[in-house]
Nucleic acid binder design. Sequence first.
DNA 1: TTCAATAGTTCGCAACATATGAACTAACGA
DNA 2: TCGTTAGTTCATATGTTGCGAACTATTGAA
Lengths: 128, 128
Amino acid sequence: MAAMRPLVHPSVDDVTVEGILHALADPVRVAIYAGLAASEKGSSCSAFLQLDNREIPKSTLSQHFRALREAGLIRSERQGVEMRNTTRCAEINSRFPGLLPALMGAYQQQLIDRMKAAKRKGSKAKSG
Amino acid sequence: MAAMRPLVHPSVDDVTVEGILHALADPVRVAIYAGLAASEKGSSCSAFLQLDNREIPKSTLSQHFRALREAGLIRSERQGVEMRNTTRCAEINSRFPGLLPALMGAYQQQLIDRMKAAKRKGSKAKSG
DNA sequence: TTCAATAGTTCGCAACATATGAACTAACGA
DNA sequence: TCGTTAGTTCATATGTTGCGAACTATTGAA
């Protein structure tokens, strides 16, 4: 028992904006997506078990990958004992031009702002 | 009893990308936001009780406005017996340049694609 | 004042979603 | 066949959402 059905990848025409936004409204999933986008040949799931100094349980991680997959943001294919995950950003970019760059750019901006804020606070209070 | 506390509007510096995406991952809220963006002097809540040929219960509508407000996307102020809701898109645009246009543009694209698909289907099956 | 009308909010609960430990499947190599 | 590594599924506890009913707030009569 416990079926282990094949992975679902929507066609690019079935990808929805609300699906993308929902998937990328979660910081963990954004970090995963950004990591995949940065790596040239994709990454396994377990590459993200430790993320941003935080332990992610692997069942949780599996759910996050599923969310990204079913939103159409990534493609996952088995490669031996592990999974090769890659972004589908080219496809999505051709359907919704500029959406993903804008999203990721805003997250990047937010990260910069937060680092600046942390630095300000750090110099004010000497040592957290 | 039943407190009716004052409306919460985050400062623009406290607006988060994940908050915006979560708020705009809901088609009803997107329709509201788009409606507000289109109207010159803002709209009341009840202007959206009927939306896209669908009845929205007013308690539900109230929650949607709250979600948009607390994500920092709109500002609501009482004006007599009703509420004046306006977008905060200028503020957000200066913090996350291009994010909102990209989002709304993608939704617009999706709408166009759906209309095209419906037309195709309509001419194939004569009268769906 | 008191009453009614209009516009939103809050409450309570049912339905749905999410996070995670435990138990599982799947591929590989010894 | 067994062990190992990688990921999925299940059960469940906890969180979130949708909506009817009951409430608050403001205005405008009477």
